[in-house]
Amino acid sequence: MELSAAWAIAKKDILIYYLKPNIIVSGALFPLFMFLAFAVGRPEAPSVMIPGLIAITILFSASSIEPVSIPIERRMKTFDRLISAPISLHAVVFGESMSGFLYSLGIAFVPLIAGIVLFGTPILHIAPLVLGLILTSFCFATMGTLFAAYPTESPGDIMSMLNLVRLPLIFVSGVFIPLNQIPAVGRFITYLSPLTYGNDLIQAAYAGTTSFSPLVDIAMLLIFILLFQFAANLLYRKFNE
């Protein structure tokens, strides 16, 4: 029952929001330009750069749907439909996150396929790639839903807060700067970033080696998903008061 209602919420978001211009810009084009700005001219091989591009694509695309859709729904009062329906807040949060998750999976295939077709980048291990795509996408989709709990009717308010977190994450999570080259002071933040573990897991598929064990990456991503899910549930309850 709860899952089917959550799926109904996700389907509704897919129909309404996937092709909204601000979501295409923030979820698909923004990560591409971010990557080009930092990657063009660097000597690394495509097999090193492609996992990073996939990771930041997921970070931006997965967390872009709810920060736009939920404030709009607050303004249109359609969000009241979701929070007054006979379903739990967990199902609402899960359903909202599912739309970001599916959007991100679709967008992540662009750099993935581009890597194979344009650069012939080999994928050494499929399992960490699949798990990395799924868990990282869901983790950041839930993070987007968490930020969207802030009670505003303006997507810009949430995007501003979200970018304060998303942009620094790129630099402390081993996407552009390898983890072993990050100063000890910044290492602590590295461990607190879910992107660190998502990027590490995707790197495992391409490089065959990881900074952490894939099991640690998987466990940490699952912990972040649960943390974001429960925090989102609490905040939506608090702000509905």
Binding site: A5, A8, L15, I16, M76, R81
Partner: peptide, 19 residues
């Protein structure tokens, strides 16, 4: 508070699924 990007039918079916 209807979804103006959905059809009348889609609005009804979505609400039914929520219930």
């Amino acid at each position: 508070n209807i979804y103006t990007d959905l059809t009348a039918w889609q609005n009804l079916m979505f609400t039914a699924e929520l219930y």
